[in-house]
């Protein structure tokens, strides 16, 4: 300890955060060693400011670390709370995504070997994203489902957040598999509007049934209609220009219905909700 101490004016300026950088550095170095000056400065310090700083320090220390998907979403402007909900979506786990990629890779490989499988790829492609939406709400895969059902967070909002997250991940996988197909590149995109139409229809059905059942109904109907037509060589039934407009209308209609009824419908996220 030295005989030199900070004068009143320096202490006041430092405690109020208006000291010059040189004075602030000197004051800090001195205060670490000088109990007398620390006692004096305590009377200048605004308790609320100290509390706010301390809260910030505590928060930085024990706040949850962000996972890389959360950090990526934050860069895209997604709110911190929404990013956390997305990160907890069961479908976004590695093993499930690998399974989807594996099935589609197999379909693409089969299409290379035999042209008939090329058409079947179009039937299978929308099922990946659809299954992703179902799995995002499957009771056995979402460990916090029961707690979530009793929470006030909007069921529709959670449904849309998770669906968007699932689509953002699965659609590029399907698209990549589509690009690997031989022949016309329109095949790589022909499944997109049907997928959008099917997803929006399934979402609209969640006011009547759980997402898993809604996806099951929609996917079942899709396979029953398109598989026989595709096998018979009538690709236009499900993927022609007229059909594309039909799926576009389905997507817009389902989305508009959800938007209009958002405040009055009850989304059935679980079997018993």
């Amino acid at each position: 300890m030295t005989g030199w101490h900070l004068d009143q004016e320096s202490l006041r300026r430092y405690s109020q955060g208006v000291a010059s950088p040189v004075l602030a550095a000197s004051a800090e170095a001195h205060l670490v060693k000088c109990a007398a000056c620390r006692d004096v400065i305590s009377s200048y310090v605004d308790a609320r400011r100290v509390e706010a700083i301390w809260r910030e320090v505590v928060d930085r220390v024990d706040a949850p670390r962000r996972t890389w998907p959360e950090r990526m979403l934050a860069r895209l402007g997604v709110g911190e709370a929404t990013a956390r909900l997305v990160a907890a979506t069961p479908t976004l786990r590695g093993p499930w995504l690998l399974a989807v990629a594996g099935v589609l890779a197999l379909a693409a490989w089969a299409a290379q070997a035999d042209e008939r499988f090329l058409q079947m790829f179009l039937v299978v492609a929308p099922l990946g994203p659809l299954a992703g939406v179902a799995v995002a709400f499957a009771g056995g895969l979402d460990p916090t489902r029961e707690i979530g059902l009793a929470a006030p967070y909007s069921g529709l909002r959670l449904l849309l957040i998770r669906t968007a997250a699932v689509l953002a991940v699965t659609v590029p996988i399907v698209a990549a598999a589509g690009l690997a197909l031989p022949g016309s590149k329109w095949l790589a995109a022909a499944w997109l509007l049907p997928t959008a139409g099917l997803i929006c229809t399934a979402l609209a059905l969640t006011s009547r049934m759980t997402p898993v059942v809604a996806v099951g109904v929609v996917a079942g109907a899709w396979v029953l209609v398109t598989a026989p037509a595709t096998v018979a060589g009538h690709l236009g039934v499900a993927f022609g220009i007229g059909a594309q407009f039909f799926w576009l209308a389905g997507a817009i209609g389902g989305g508009a219905w959800l938007a209009v009824t958002r405040n009055t419908i009850t989304i059935r996220l679980g079997r018993s909700a």
């Binding site: 709370a81 907890a88 916090t144 929470a151």
Partner: peptide
């Protein structure tokens, strides 16, 4: 913290 978000506590 995750459950708190589901309970609509949005301010971090």
């Amino acid at each position: 913290d995750y459950v708190a978000i589901l309970k609509e506590m949005t301010d971090r």
